[in-house]
Simulated assay, not measured.
Amino acid sequence: MTRLIVAAGGGGDAVAAAVLHAALYGDEDQAVILTYAWDRLLVDPVPGPRGAHDFTGLEALTPSLWSVPATARPVAPAGSTLPRLASELPHTLALLDPSHGVEGVTRQLKELLAYFTPESIDLLDVGGDILARGDEPTLKSPLADAVTLAACCQVNAPVRLLVAGPGLDGELSAQDLCPMLGPVVHTLTAEDVAPVGNILEWHPSEATGMLTATARGTRGVCEVRDAGLPVPLTDESPRVHEVDLDEALSHNTLARAITATTTLDEAEAHSREICGFSEIDYERNKALWLKNQAPAPLDADTVLRQVDEFESEARARGVTHTTFRHLTEVLNLNGTQRGELRQLLISDRPSRHDAPLWNIGT
């Protein structure tokens, strides 16, 4: 028996998909997780998602669909978390490649369904921005979710849309999402998320990191992303809701507009028109800035002093937690230094590691 889970937004959703598979389906056969290779400059210095041509060592499943084994490697200068995920998850990772727009992703989905004949199909989004109209001022990354939503609505098979951790991506609040959320399918527990604990110590996903932290009981306000968005961690955060797929499509203006696109450039153009921006444009601009920022040596005394200052200011804002990604941004460190920063802080203040988050103390 094979279950298919489409990770709507990227690598973090793929990790959440593995958690969800175990929570909902137990120890059945492996799942197939269809996911982007899109690490948002955290691991990959190249803007946008990676396609099949950006890897060596992929395994062909169908004419337009490839799996990512542990031995696959991104072609420099690109980077990707997928090969390492493949080595640590007991599932098949299939590469969702949006190079040919929604029509291309739809073709990949149809070929995948014919190849595996899965017992069930779930479309999973952590945070819920897949339910955005497109004009919300807090929206940051609608394109990836809109592509997967539009494609899943075109296959001749039942697809269940699931939203885990409403509001945890820092884009739409849980309160804004509430009217669109259906019944609770599952509330994640510490036992559910334990198998991916080690993965989230190195994987950069903030939303899935907060999802697993709240499943363990963490509550408060977590500051995330380069902009320092405050995300409430509440009893709602570890819940997984079912959402009507057709209603989601009718609400998502961008997803409807890009249904017939045959290139990613076309989909981007619609995003600029409907949302007022393209998230890949943002990545392009940031990548140019980062290219000129050579990583300076990480000086422990300086970093610890800067962290003290940040924590004092954050507490005054009512913040209780943050992510190591956000700390890296706040301290103007290079993304490649996130692991070194994490090791320094945990070594110096082990009691403050509220895995995988950082507790800023009282």
Rank of each mutant, 00 (worst) to 15 (best):
P77Q: 11
T261K: 04
L20C: 02
T262E: 11
L264W: 08
Q30C: 08
T362Q: 14
G9A: 14
F310S: 12
L95S: 03
E59W: 02
M1H: 09
H241S: 00
V240D: 01
G57H: 12
A18H: 04
I346E: 12
A355V: 08
C222I: 01
L139F: 04
T259A: 15
G134M: 10
L58M: 09
L264G: 06
A157H: 14
A23S: 13
A269I: 06
R84T: 10
V68N: 09
H91Q: 08
E103C: 11
T212H: 01
A94I: 12
H353W: 15
S141G: 03
D27Q: 09
K291N: 08
N198I: 13
P74Q: 04
D39I: 05
L200C: 05
L42I: 00
V46H: 11
V307H: 06
A294F: 08
A22G: 13
E311G: 02
R160Q: 13
A31I: 11
H186K: 13
L113S: 08
P63S: 13
Q306A: 15
T362F: 12
T117M: 05
T302L: 15
P77K: 08
S205R: 09
D192M: 02
G104K: 02
A227N: 10
R225H: 15
L162H: 03
C152H: 06
R272N: 00
Y25S: 03
N198L: 14
P183L: 11
A132N: 12
T117L: 07
A255Y: 03
E247G: 13
H270P: 01
T259Q: 14
P69N: 10
V185T: 09
L168Q: 10
D192Y: 01
L233Q: 06
S351V: 11
V102R: 02
N252F: 09
T2C: 02
D135H: 14
T323F: 05
D354G: 04
D226T: 02
